[in-house]
Design a protein around this nucleic acid. Structure first.
Length: 414
DNA sequence: TCTGGGGTCCTAGGACCC
DNA sequence: TCTGGGGTCCTAGGACCC
């Protein structure tokens, strides 16, 4: 009998190199070797090639500045359908070798290689090399891979050599890596905690793991204790191979320029947020019990309010009316706002919710049927062939979002 | 990094109850 | 009239991730 608990693990982490741009180059090899950025549709750089990085461009830089200062850079809009396709092909290659693959984000995955060496007659490093080569040859994508006893260490490893790297951290060798890892580079330690730790003279990951367990418990919350253990080589975080089809919340937010305090306009933005969020909820067959909505001011302050629905729903009409009614809870006259956003919370599968047709005083059921029809129209004719009249104003302003001209669109007034 | 959008998880503290 | 100690549940908000 083997005892899994006591066994050394080999955790694999793979990270796409400049993934969005990588896919663009794979789609169009003429772009190879050129400075390329994506994010045109958002107005800021979301991904950039290493050639673009070498020029001094960074993530989040406004596109207009790229155009002005770096006229030779190729600027592309995001093509998320392609990214998703390449992503799943990439993960499928990992699945040729490992059973449990966790799709952590569109360009990252974890896998447990423990025990595979025997059956595959390869070392973990050889397996990783095979995966890397297959991703390379079949998808024309470059990835960096880390191998280590835990997930947190595997993240350290995959970042060690980039792009196109392969790094293994052996248990006996952990300290050598941690000495050279600044505290703020550790997965799960963000700016706030890094600042706190630095004030305590903890500058590297090695400084961090040298602290006693008591000190960690007294000074930090639970997630940091997990990180502390994992950095010491103790396996805590499991690989979670369940595919993401259930959301616990769905969020839609959009910023606009210039900032405004025009209530009618803000309401139309909320209307669009709600429409989009509800469409996604219907797509995943989820209904929401609570609507959280917020305004962000020009100086990035947030005012929010939560509304509970009398019955779970995924149609936009009722939430929109409720936001309209409650807007004054968060809206102040003289303040300029730059963002509206909504979050559908407490999501549950719509099958679990009994539609109470007799108590349906608000006509919810009818609305659900109408929206199902609209959804299938959109499948056929494209997004936003039909939308609510209350959203119209949000789409009217040009250059705000990604929407095409709306001249010949159909409005639905309810 | 002068700041876009979409997520998750954890905690402190209030409300309420015995 | 004043009062202890403890539990649960919920919510808002912080921190972090890609």
């Amino acid at each position: 009998m083997t005892r899994l608990g006591s066994k050394e693990r080999t955790i694999f982490h793979m990270d796409g190199d400049a993934f969005f741009v990588g896919v663009e180059v794979a789609k169009n090899p003429k772009l190879r070797g050129l400075p390329v950025v994506t994010g045109e549709e958002r107005g800021i750089v979301s991904a950039l090639s290493y050639e673009a990085k070498a020029l001094g461009i960074i993530r989040g830089m406004p596109i207009f500045r790229v155009k002005k200062n770096f006229p030779k850079v190729i600027i592309l809009p995001g093509d998320y359908a392609s990214y998703a396709r390449y992503s799943s092909q990439m993960f499928d290659i990992v699945r040729r070798y490992a059973d449990d693959v966790e799709e952590y984000s569109i360009d990252e995955c974890f896998a447990d290689l423990t025990g595979l060496s025997r059956s595959l007659k390869m070392t973990p490093k050889e397996i990783a090399l095979r995966i890397k080569r297959e991703v390379n040859q079949e998808l024309d994508l470059s990835v960096s891979i880390g191998l280590a006893p835990t997930k947190v260490l595997a993240k350290v490893a995959s970042k060690w050599v980039k792009p196109n790297g392969l790094t293994e951290i052996l248990k006996s060798d952990i300290a050598n890596f941690l000495i050279k890892t600044p505290i703020e580079k550790i997965w799960g330690i963000g700016p706030k905690t890094a600042e706190f730790l630095k004030r305590k003279n903890i500058l590297t990951a090695q400084d961090f793991v040298s602290k006693s367990s008591v000190w960690i418990k007294e000074n930090l919350s639970k997630p940091y204790e997990t990180i502390w253990l994992e950095l010491r080589g103790e396996h805590i975080l499991e690989i979670d191979p369940i595919l993401k089809t259930v959301y616990s919340s769905i969020q839609k937010t959009r910023s606009f320029h210039p900032a405004t305090n025009d209530k009618t306009f803000l309401l139309s933005r909320f209307s669009k947020n709600i429409e989009d969020a509800c469409a996604k909820a219907r797509h995943y067959k989820l209904v929401s019990k609570k609507i959280y909505f917020f305004l962000k001011t020009v100086d990035f302050k947030c005012e929010s309010y939560t509304i509970s629905l009398s019955s779970p729903s995924n149609v936009p009409e009722i939430p929109i009316a409720l936001i309209k009614k409650n807007l004054n809870k968060i809206y102040k006259d003289k303040i300029l706002y730059r963002t509206t956003g909504v979050v559908l919370q407490e999501l549950a599968p719509d099958s679990e919710v009994q539609t109470d047709l007799f108590g349906d005083t608000e006509g919810t059921h009818k609305l659900e049927l109408i929206h199902k029809q609209i959804d299938s129209l959109e499948d056929k004719f494209g997004k936003r062939v039909v939308y609510l009249g209350s959203t119209h104003k949000a789409l009217k302003q040009k250059g705000l979002g990604t929407e095409p001209d709306d001249e010949d669109r159909n409005l639905l007034f309810l």
